[in-house]
């Protein structure tokens, strides 16, 4: 039986790498007596997989994990059961049972929402800037947005403009753009000024990290980019309802993508 959970990760837990978060869940599931299925063999392990591992230092209100269960008599109680064994910095927000033939969320990921916030105490040209929204509009109005993407061996220039769906400095506007409600967040955004919201393509083919957008934005206003200046927080992860196997639809394509949060996908 397949299921998916959505969880948040914040505070000091941002320093726990994703392999350790996996171990954390395995132990929590055992404490909570969740009937997770085990692989066979001498050292059986629980069948779990993350949609998209979160880097060390980042926080999130929308992490997803797929799991195999032996049984699930009371799905509506699962969130509470699991949370009874979670610390207060990793909390389960949603639990859904999936059809048996559903694909792993890892393979379906098509987009992500992020919030990028300037940390308190950092000196920056963005600090208390009144025209932030205009800067973003100008930034997006460029014909192309070129950044150098570094991989292990090569460095190449890529145009990330098609990968930025929305960009805003106001939560209200961003919610209108994406058509979503983010509810209360586990990050205290009052502490940060300014905060930038973005919706970006994600997944194995078109994964654009918010760091790359920030790097491009800094380049645009001609200021050095220091990744340690910003707190990045994931707000949502989506699958593409129009995406079939092997096909990629961008927002402005003829057949545009239709982003559905992973917790609602295949429901």
């Amino acid at each position: 039986m397949k299921a998916r959970i959505k969880f948040s990760k914040c505070g000091s837990m941002r320093f726990i790498g994703h392999l350790d978060v996996m171990r954390y869940f395995q132990k929590a599931f055992r404490r909570a007596h969740i009937p997770v299925s085990y692989s066979k063999g001498y050292s059986p392990h629980q069948i779990l997989s993350f949609t998209s591992p979160l880097g060390i230092g980042l926080t999130s209100d929308a992490e997803y994990m797929d799991m195999e269960l032996e049984e699930c008599p009371e799905p509506e109680k699962m969130v509470d059961w699991i949370n009874s064994q979670m610390n207060d910095e990793i909390r389960v927000k949603d639990f859904v049972l999936l059809p048996d033939d559903s694909k792993p969320s890892m393979a379906m990921l098509a987009g992500c929402d992020y919030l990028v916030a300037l940390k308190p105490g950092k000196v920056s040209v963005f600090r208390d800037r009144k025209d932030m929204e205009q800067v973003l509009v100008d930034f997006l109005a460029q014909p192309e947005i070129l950044v150098t993407k570094k991989t292990k061996r090569s460095e190449k220039q890529v145009d990330i403009k098609p990968n930025i769906y929305y960009l805003s400095s106001s939560m209200e506007d961003f919610q209108v753009q994406t058509g979503r409600e983010y509810g209360s967040l586990c990050i205290d955004i009052e502490e940060y000024q300014p905060v930038i919201y973005c919706q970006l393509t994600a997944g194995s083919v078109l994964n654009i990290k918010p760091e790359l957008v920030m790097q491009a934005l800094c380049q645009f206003v001609d200021t050095p980019y220091d990744p340690l200046d910003y707190q990045i927080h994931r707000l949502e992860m989506y699958g593409d309802a129009n995406g079939k196997k092997g096909e990629i639809h961008l927002l402005h394509d003829e057949v545009p993508c239709e982003l559905v949060p992973l917790s609602e996908y295949q429901k």
């Binding site: 000091s12 132990k27 929590a28 060390i56 940390k119 340690l228």
Partner: peptide
């Protein structure tokens, strides 16, 4: 600080809050 924790090996050694 974040800067320090992000620059050292295995920051989880220093944050406590274990189960």
């Amino acid at each position: 600080s974040d800067e320090i924790l992000l620059s050292v090996e295995k920051p989880a050694r220093y944050i406590g809050n274990e189960i």
